[in-house]
Structure formats: structure tokens, C-alpha cells
Nucleic acid binder design. Structure first.
Lengths: 237, 237
DNA sequence: CCTTAAACATGATTTTTGTCATGTTTTATT
DNA sequence: AATAAAACATGACAAAAATCATGTTTAAGG
């Protein structure tokens, strides 16, 4: 029993749009955008775009979760950003008119639209409000990146690990139990975000588990003692 | 014998402007901008804006060098960005409509203009090209920040220190001898950029000095063996 | 369902880096 | 010029974290 193929609803009816930079577009602009966008389905683990490729459009996540990673030294992967429904991805290289410096890979099955590059630039130019939404989005990402820099520079691995769990909670939210972080990452992926070795990551999660800060079952991480986790992250109030 | 007070030349004649995001403005726009900007002189070590303050305008560095720093944990300073002539500073908080998350402090005597906040937003809205220049600038800063994240996550202190010297060279250039990095930072400031302790920073610079990679005299750092420095930074080709 | 690879886990060891201590040099200020 | 305060420097030690090794569990693919 397969799911029926959904109607191609178009940008008008797209509920995700309202939580994206495109919330400022209206009426005819949406009809037009619809003509320059296409929507694709991705299986977990698939590349949306890859390092070194040339951008041909802007990606907008409809559903599913995406990691933005770059290959560091000795091929070690670094997770730079995490995206979810409503987020645009692949904008940095597009705007700078460069090849991708990072890759986007789905963390679960996803549906992602592509908006044609030339059209995107045109509508940005004609709609200052849209461009300003983009400016604000990049500014936010810059803030997040700079917070990460401070953390990497000044905190130890234990603190960063606790911080990362809080970051995942803030980014992807919790399941119905209000405790379980709503994303499945391997220990290696968490390590690639935290900036540590996989072993250290595993060890620290085990420690947090023993300390009753979290509860582990498979890839699921349940935050059982939020105040203690915040304290472990050493976050100022 | 004092220097004569220079004519208030205005944005028309400003040569720095051509290397800034404002290079896209023309004619009347420059006359208008002149009415909404003021220029200030700063002594070395002065604050241009301070963490937690409210932005009232956009700063544009005329001459002099500026560090953008934030206070991390236990009050430890983190250098996030370095600015020079033609760079805009204080844009992140302004655009996000937030209080400053970082401070800007001059590294030497400087002359810096402020462009009124409301006017800046108005001219951005009416001049897509200007806003796009801003988008590109922030995108670049994001790229720089993310490169720094990879470095902090994956490289050891020695490699990061070598990388930092190359970064300073790229940012501020070299003196006439084509070897001396054109900026004076204390060892502590370098450490606050690299993400290490002051002692480790001092030690590594001494080592590089012994290894004939650099030559030290006071705060001046001369790169005497660039290939070896690049190799020490472990940068891929 | 079985097989294989990936992911998870943990101990032992080594390397890296921070911290503490102490002394010297440079710079700024009266 | 004298004095104080930064800034620079280096050794000794401790702490943190990576690496190596090895084994178990879980998940994926034929």
C-alpha cells in the first residue's frame, strides 16, 4: 500500500514557506517562483549538493533534516550547520559566486525544493524585503558560527558536548515525551560537530548517562536532567 | 608642528569608499549619505562599540585596524574578526536588531565613520546593489568563521598558530621589506584569536623563531621562511 | 535469515596542552 | 629618570584529550 503521489501544490499552499525567508513573497510572485522551482525527494544519507560543485540554485528544505559538512584535514569531516524544514541551504556559495565549500547530506528522508539561481537573484533584486530576510538569515548563521568559535576556543570537550546536546535540542526540538532530542546522529557525527574524537564522544555520552544527565537508547538521547546539563555546559545566565 | 585639520571632504572624495560596500553608491546618494554620517578619531585601544550596547549606526573604518572581540567564559577574551580600512563593523547586531554581542576596539589610532541606522536601512532598501554588497560581505565573514571552526576542531595549537600568522599576513599585508606582518598584536591577543593560552602562544612563537620560520623583534613578526610556515600550518594544496 | 560492516564501547597509553611559578624585559607614567 | 605595570619568557608539573587496541552490539544488504 503505497502513499498516493501528492498534488503538486505549488508555493501558494506551501506551509513551510511561511517559516522561511520566502514568507515575504506574495500573489503573483509565488506563481512565478513556482515556475522556477522544482521539488525533489531524498533518501537518508543522500547528497543535496557536494563540495566543489557549482551552485545552480538555492535549496529550501521542505521536510527532513540536513547536515552541512566540510572535509577538513586528513579527510576528517566537520559538521558546520544543521538545517531543518523551512531552512535554506547552499546559499553561501551561491551568493559568493563560488564552488561549494561544503556538502549537504540528508540525515533522514527529506523533500527539498531548488529555486533557479538566476530567478533567485532576480527576485532578490526586485524584492528588497526578500533580500533582507536573506541578510538576516546569514547574520544569524554568522552569530551561531561565532558562538561555536568561542566554545571551541575556550571550553573543554565535556562542556562542549553538553552544549552540543542543548544545541540539538534547540535546533530540532523534543519528541512528545518532552525529553528525547528529535534527531538521530551517530556518535561520530556528534563528534564531528563538537570537534573531538569519536571515542571521547562515546565516553562522555556514557558518562552523562551514568551521571543521570541523559538516558541513551540506541541513537536516541533523552535529557533527563536539564538543569544539570546546562550546568555541565557551563553556560552563563 | 601639528598636522593641519583636514577638509571635511565628504563621501564623494572618500577613496576608502571604493574598497567598501559603498562603492555601488553614486552622485546624489553620496551627498545624502554625507548628511547622515559622521567621522570620529580614535586612539589606540579605544572602544568603537561595546558588548551589550545598542547599535545606532553602521561603522565604516576609514583608517586604522580594529579587533572584534567577545567575552567568553570566565571573562576570557575571544577575537572573532579583524577589520581594516574599508571594512564595515558593527553590522551583525544592527541587522539582527539586537544588542552588540561583541566589542570593537582599535588596535592603533584610527578614523572611523558612523552611518545613521535609519538612513542605512533606508538606502539599503532603495538600493538593492548596496544590500547585495552587504550580503556578500557577511557571506565572506561566515566563510572565514567556518574555516576557523574547522581549524579549531581539527588542528593542534602549533598548526593553528602558523595558520594565524598566515591569516594576519593575508588580512593586513606585509611591510616594505615584504616579510614583516603589518600589525602589532600582543601575544595575548594572538592567543585570543588562536584559541590557546598566552604561554603556549609565546612558547610556539619562540619555537618558530628558533626554527627560523619567523624572526621576532618586539611585536613585529617577520616571516623568514614562508614555505615552511605554510607546511607547519598543514594547509592542503 | 544470515553475513558483514558499521557503530558502539571501554581500557591502557601517550601526546598535547594548560596551569602554576618565577624571573626578565619592555613600555608607559609621573 | 625613576617607578610601576604590562608584556614576554621559560621550566616544571598536572590535566585533558587523542590514539591504539580490542571486543561487543547493532544495523544493513544479499
Amino acid at each position: 500500500m503505497k502513499k498516493p503521489i501528492p498534488f503538486e501544490t505549488g508555493c501558494h499552499q506551501c506551509t513551510v514557506r511561511m517559516h522561511s525567508v520566502f514568507n515575504v513573497l506574495q500573489g503573483d510572485q509565488l506563481v512565478e517562483m513556482n515556475m522556477y522551482k522544482s521539488c525533489n525527494v531524498y533518501k537518508k544519507g543522500q547528497y543535496v549538493f557536494a563540495e566543489n560543485g557549482l551552485p545552480t540554485g538555492l535549496f529550501c528544505v521542505n521536510s527532513g533534516k540536513v547536515k552541512i559538512t566540510t572535509t577538513g584535514y586528513d579527510g576528517k569531516e566537520q559538521i558546520l550547520r544543521l538545517a531543518k524544514s523551512g531552512d535554506i541551504v547552499g546559499y553561501r556559495a551561491l551568493i559568493s559566486n563560488e564552488r561549494y565549500a561544503s556538502s549537504a547530506v540528508t540525515l533522514e528522508d527529506a523533500s527539498i525544493c531548488v529555486i533557479d539561481k538566476d530567478y533567485f537573484f532576480k527576485v532578490m533584486e526586485s524584492t528588497p524585503k526578500l533580500m533582507f530576510e536573506v541578510v538576516k538569515k546569514i547574520s544569524q548563521d554568522l552569530k551561531t558560527a561565532e558562538d561555536h568559535i568561542v566554545s571551541l576556543s575556550q571550553k573543554n570537550v565535556r562542556e562542549r558536548m553538553a552544549e552540543a546536546l542543548l544545541f540539538l535540542k534547540a535546533t530540532y526540538g523534543l519528541e512528545e515525551d518532552l525529553q528525547t532530542i528529535q534527531v538521530n546522529l551517530t556518535r561520530e557525527e556528534i563528534a564531528d560537530y563538537v570537534g573531538t574524537s569519536t571515542e571521547s564522544c562515546i565516553r562522555l555520552l556514557s558518562e552523562f548517562n551514568q551521571d543521570k544527565i541523559i538516558a541513551l537508547s540506541g541513537k536516541k538521547i533523552k535529557i533527563t536532567n536539564l538543569p544539570l546539563l546546562i550546568q555541565t555546559a557551563n553556560i552563563e545566565d
